[in-house]
Design a protein around this nucleic acid. Structure first.
Lengths: 137, 137
DNA sequence: TACATATTCCACCCTGAGGTAGGAATTATG
DNA sequence: CATAATTCCTACCTCAGGGTGGAATATGTA
């Protein structure tokens, strides 16, 4: 019942970048601010860049920036790029066919939570997350 | 947002055993009925036995049986034995200190789902699961 | 040129899932 | 009673994938 470490890194990095506005964030800066391994974060940011979620600038004073409206970047998009969506909207016992008509033994107990989480990651965007009162990244 | 494969195996096996009543279930029988790798299931059942959740009988016509009231075996107990509880009641972004007073950026969005799931696995027992109308194991 | 930064390739460690090989206990059967 | 069959049990081995670090390369700025 958790995200992968990589997804955690990605979300935290993007939330921090969003909080910094349009200015460039280098991997080194992000790594130090968020206490994320530098090399690993470098590759993760490249992945997010290749997916079109962020854009990069090389050379001195380079870095990454978010060049899309924050409300268009949903949690779902981030997780999908990093980990895929196989672990979401999934039968708790792993049955490929599990629904109201042909439920697994856990279906009735799992359904509401599964749907709630799926709805949450689908609808929550960086804009909503930034509006929270958190002091952490 | 899923259980480990091993936890899935454990729950499915115990639900099936519960549905069989007090009679012995061999690993071979369970493996074939539930389509779970034989050797892997053997070790898993031994683990559940060592933890006291089920009891074993060796020799011909031997197997495993549940000798406790089904209402006393909670989903939490099963998952705890197999995987531990580190992945439950956990901050979505991995912060060790995350609560209403010092929340992470995702806290407000994750809290209700986290609490709901924790409450579900804590309160649902094999007795309730057996009462469901599922035809799968 | 010198430096800072992104980007890519390779090697490593740990864990989960699964397999191989045998030992220990109990029962069926000649 | 003796032996074979069945079953639990335990110790290692393999393999893939996630997370990590080192090193080298590409690309831009001062």
């Amino acid at each position: 019942m958790r995200l992968s470490t990589t997804s955690e890194y990605a979300i935290r990095s993007l939330v921090y970048m969003a909080s910094c506005g349009p200015e460039l964030c280098s991997v080194k800066h992000l790594s130090e601010k968020l206490d994320i391994p530098y090399k690993y974060l470098g590759r993760l940011m490249a992945t997010l860049g290749n997916a079109g979620l962020i854009s990069s600038t090389r050379g001195k004073n380079g870095g990454y920036t978010i060049d899309k409206p924050l409300s268009t970047i949903r949690l779902l998009d981030i997780v999908q790029i990093v980990d895929g969506l196989d672990n979401f909207d999934r039968c708790l016992l792993g049955f490929p066919e599990c629904n109201d008509d042909d439920p697994c033994p856990m279906h009735d107990f799992w359904k509401e939570h599964n749907e709630g989480i799926t709805e949450m990651i689908t609808n929550v965007s960086l804009a909503e997350i930034l509006a929270s009162k958190s002091k952490k990244f």
